[in-house]
């Protein structure tokens, strides 16, 4: 239902995302994983046509028979919120502080002509109940500051699914929350997916979260794909040294959100990447070939973009 091919995002000379391809089937959840600055958010914004000014996307994003990258602003507006919903990372700032929760949920419904004001308000009430906010009638008229972080994120989810989109893009929706709330929200998202059959592009830097929700996973580093495959296979036997490192970095027995620091060293600046594999500087296996030649996708139990992939077990 969505086929992304060869997506690149540039900011002037800088290539923030290069040659990214992935697909999503209805009802499927794809986890997009990577360290901070790896281009996850920009990929999500490219899907909605909401890249920051100055950034250009190339390639193609085929969705419901259209190439989103070639739509006019007006055509994109008909897709945004209606066919593709989005949940943002920061529940504290992603809601307008001076508008009631109900009005913010209803706004998109009215905007897309799915209901009049009264109908949209009723729908908002149902959605608030659906996402598990206590005392929905009161929450309808509540302002964001009257809700806790987890409750606001639920409200944001209600807002994103208000028009029953076919695809939900969720950019680290749980990263700012504590573990128990995180688990509840993941369960909620899974339920909604099961009910509505919508596909989900789920962005996170937390492999533990991916393992609980995503059918398939795509690992991103420096704006390039590192490895992709069925989540289970990928986590059981990672073939890319980077994925390997990510997994090793999860403390045993306590799999909650920790900033990914799989290897010594920092994510290099995008303009200082080597011509070959972006992970070269931090990879324990890197050699001259890795430095100079971009690695091809190597098929196996998963696909790894690596000159020296781990052998399948």
């Amino acid at each position: 239902m969505i086929i992304v091919e060869n997506l690149s995002i540039r900011l002037g000379e800088l290539e923030i995302v290069r040659g990214l391809s992935f697909t999503l089937a209805p009802g499927e959840v794809l986890g997009l994983v990577g360290e901070s600055g790896s281009g996850k958010s920009m990929t999500a914004l490219a899907v909605l046509g909401l890249l920051p000014p100055g950034m250009r996307a190339s390639g193609s994003i085929r969705f419901e028979g259209q190439d989103l990258l070639r739509l006019s602003e007006r055509e994109l507006r008909a897709v945004r919120g209606r066919r593709i919903g989005m949940v943002f990372q920061e529940p504290m700032t992603a809601l307008n502080p001076v508008m009631t929760i109900g009005a913010q949920i209803a706004e998109g419904v009215i905007r897309h002509g799915l209901a009049d004001a009264a109908g949209a308000s009723k729908r908002a009430l149902r959605l608030i109940a659906r996402v598990g906010l206590p005392d929905p009638a009161a929450r309808l008229h509540a302002y964001p500051h009257e809700l806790s972080g987890g409750q606001r994120q639920r409200a944001l989810i209600a807002l994103a699914i208000a028009c029953r989109p076919a695809l939900l893009v969720a950019d680290e929706p749980t990263s700012a929350l504590d573990v128990t709330v995180q688990a509840e929200l993941l369960a909620l998202l899974r339920e909604i997916r099961d009910e509505t059959g919508m596909a989900m592009l789920f962005i996170t830097h937390d492999l533990a979260v991916v393992s609980r929700l995503a059918d398939r996973t795509l690992v991103l580093y420096g704006g390039r794909a590192m490895e992709t495959g069925a989540t289970r296979a990928l986590l059981a036997a990672p073939r890319h040294p980077y994925t390997h490192g990510l997994l090793a970095a999860i403390p045993r027995g306590n799999a909650h959100a920790n900033p990914l620091r799989p290897m010594p060293g920092q994510v290099p600046e995008l303009d200082r990447l080597p011509p070959g594999c972006p992970f070269f500087g931090r990879c324990p296996k890197g050699d001259a070939l890795c430095r100079d030649v971009p690695p091809p996708p190597v098929p196996g139990a998963s696909i790894a973009w690596c000159h020296r992939p781990e052998a399948a077990p």
């Binding site: 909605l48 909401l50 507006r77 008909a78 897709v79 945004r80 919120g81 209606r82 919903g85 989005m86 943002f88 992603a94 809601l95 307008n96 913010q104 706004e107 998109g108 905007r111 897309h112 944001l156 807002l159 994103a160």
Partner: peptide, 8 residues
């Protein structure tokens, strides 16, 4: 951004 993502 949330508002734009709604289609505004």
């Amino acid at each position: 951004l949330t508002a734009r993502a709604k289609g505004l």
